[in-house]
Write a protein that binds this DNA or RNA. Structure first.
Length: 117
RNA sequence: UGAGUGGACUAGGUGAUCGCGAAGGUAUACCUUUGAGGAAAGUCCGAGCUCCGUAGAGCAGAAUGCUGGGUAACGCCCAGUGAAGGUGACUUCAAGGCUAGUGCCACAGAGACAAACCGCCUCAAGAAGAAGAUCUCGUUUUGAGGUAAGGGUGAAAAGGUGAGGUAAGAGCUCACCAGCGAUUAGGCGACUAAUCGGCUAGGUAAACCCCAUUUGGAGCAAGGUCAAAUAGGGAAGGAGAGGCUGCUCGUCUCGCUAAACUUCCGGGUUGACCGCAUGAGAUCUUAGGCAACUAAGGUCCUAGAUAGAUGAUCAUCCACGACAGAACUCGGCUUAUCGGUCCACUCAGAAC
């Protein structure tokens, strides 16, 4: 999975990208000329201390690795965590992120959130 | 058995599947090993390391502040001393010097290094009065003194309590206590004990200050190597400028018109590697020491990321899992923390 690392790229996605809101996450996307899609994670200090922020980033990264092969190429994504993330179970977080990605049209095929209920 | 004091340790475990960082191996896809804390936190102290051309001197500033020891060092630790608290185990303390100098002590109060407001007492003068007969007494008034007992004010009023003493009083005298000084004895020392002395010196140094000791600054985004890129770009000032960055002195370096240096504008890298994981290291034994700790010998190698590695699912057991995530590295301090285990000791009650 290609990662978004540069702070300049992050601000570019935030200023010109198209945000889409879910219950627990916010996904901003921006089309690029690259052959692959790059993903960045944003968890602010408002969410919690270092332990909870680390845990959230691990969970989000694990979900994105699951859908990596189905991601459309040529997009820069920034996945931001909302404050409600802290109370969410892993399965709830997974369903929410799937729904937001599908709604943005970033996935090649439809993946059901009903795999895990 | 109940109540308590001090200290040490631990921080969910086991198994399966899919994933992540690092190292190694086979030979490009897998396998093996390993992978957060007691506080990794706050960044409050102390050091190592790196740079600031040279760790020169003095002053200022800052920090510390009972004594002795430990340590690379410390504002930390250990053992003591003193004071305060607790029946006790024990706990707490910025605990040098107001007898170097200066300042401050609001309000109240007469008075806050200084005192007579009320009071008490003595003497003198005199009006009224009483008994008596030309003198004595004299509440009150006026004046001159004595006094620090009592009252009142205050956080604090010239050591405290008792006795003697006195016109009334007062360390004026005595006893005990507190405080001060000297001598002797004990202790490396802080200090303790005894004896003697003159009888009194207000508090405040977390007020300035004095004394003693220590003390350059910035920090791994330090700093270095390689690669790439630009450009040795433009403008203004300019004879002095710079450094250990407060000051002075010393010393050194560069430069004086094709100009050192300063300021502003413009341009550019945000890559890789080193630093960076063997260290004041961990652990065991022996020896020294009350202890902190030290010495010798044996054994071990134990995270190293750079958008930053530990997650997800299931099974099972139990006390049902708190605070919380390494970022150059150590030694401390402080703060957060669901619980559990162990050791030593104290008090109260019961039994023997």
């Amino acid at each position: 999975m290609e990662r978004l690392k540069n702070p300049r790229d992050f601000s570019l996605v935030y200023s010109q990208g198209r945000p889409r809101f879910g219950k627990y996450v916010v996904v901003s996307s921006l089309p690029t000329d690259l052959e692959v899609s790059r993903v960045g994670f944003a968890v602010s200090k408002k969410v919690g201390n270092a332990v909870t922020r680390n845990k959230l980033k691990r969970r989000l990264r694990a979900i994105m690795q699951e859908v990596e092969s189905d991601l459309k190429p040529g997009y820069d994504l920034v996945i931001g965590a909302k404050r409600s993330c802290v109370e969410a179970e892993f399965a709830q977080l997974r369903t929410d992120l799937f729904r937001v990605l599908q709604g943005s049209g970033l996935l090649n095929r439809t993946m059901g959130g009903e795999e895990h209920s």
